[in-house]
């Protein structure tokens, strides 16, 4: 019962919010890079690569993020690496995000119309050229709305990094609550802050989707 919520508490929460954004960006970039490799591996001409990446995706998508975070935290310690909560959380979130973004992007790459693949092949482009010059530019367009939508999931999921002791928004809320013991008020503030970060992204994703829908209907074959 340490008095009332004051400016210092709010500053502390603000700092936590910045770390939430920081961790989200790390997870998006790390998960994006690994996820892109996963997406390409899922449609690889080599069966073993396809199988290995499919197993990876199935395993990660069948495990809760909370358990992956604990595995990252204790696993890195078990092999003798002393890591900070930031490193453990970043590594775990990267592996987690990669599995989901990889699947989303695989779908986007495969939804580029078949004639585009055939035309590129007919022009004697190599597999790499076909990907870079023909397929990926169109796939990125298709992938933008679901990727922005998934960024909302990333921001929300960083809240779980609080359990391995990383002081982001959720954890800073718990710390403030430990000194004030006004859980309902503090978690309401936390919820509103998360909402303020996520809702604009949700709206943006919806708008992109609608715009895409318009473009699509014009392109649709008669």
């Amino acid at each position: 019962m340490g008095g009332h919520l004051n400016v210092n508490h709010l500053m502390f929460l603000g700092q936590g919010a910045l770390w939430t954004i920081g961790l989200s960006v790390i997870a998006l970039i790390g998960g994006g890079i690994v996820g892109f490799v996963i997406a390409l591996a899922r449609i690889s001409p080599l069966k073993s690569v396809r199988l290995a990446s499919a197993v990876y995706v199935q395993l990660v998508q069948g495990t809760p993020l909370l358990v992956i975070l604990f595995l990252g935290y204790f696993g890195l310690a078990a092999i003798g690496l002393k890591v900070s909560p930031l490193v453990a959380a970043s590594a775990s979130l990267t592996l987690y995000v990669a599995a989901y973004l990889g699947e989303i992007w695989r779908g986007c790459i495969q939804s580029v119309p078949k004639p585009q693949w055939e035309a590129a092949e007919g022009l004697a482009l190599t597999r790499t050229q076909r990907m870079i010059k023909v397929i990926l530019p169109q796939a990125i367009r298709i992938a933008t709305p679901p990727t922005v939508g998934f960024m909302v999931q990333i921001i929300k999921n960083t809240s779980l990094a609080s359990v391995v002791g990383f002081v982001e928004l959720m954890r800073s809320g718990q710390i403030v609550n430990n000194s004030l013991f006004e859980p309902f008020a503090i978690y309401a503030i936390i919820a509103v802050t998360y909402f303020a970060m996520c809702y604009p992204l949700s709206l943006f994703s919806q708008r992109l989707e609608r715009r895409m829908g318009r473009g699509r209907s014009n392109l649709a074959p008669a």
Partner: peptide
């Protein structure tokens, strides 16, 4: 849909 489950659980619990 725009707030984390962890926060929702705490809000219900303490609410």
């Amino acid at each position: 849909r725009n707030t984390p489950l962890l926060v929702q659980i705490f809000l219900v619990y303490f609410g």
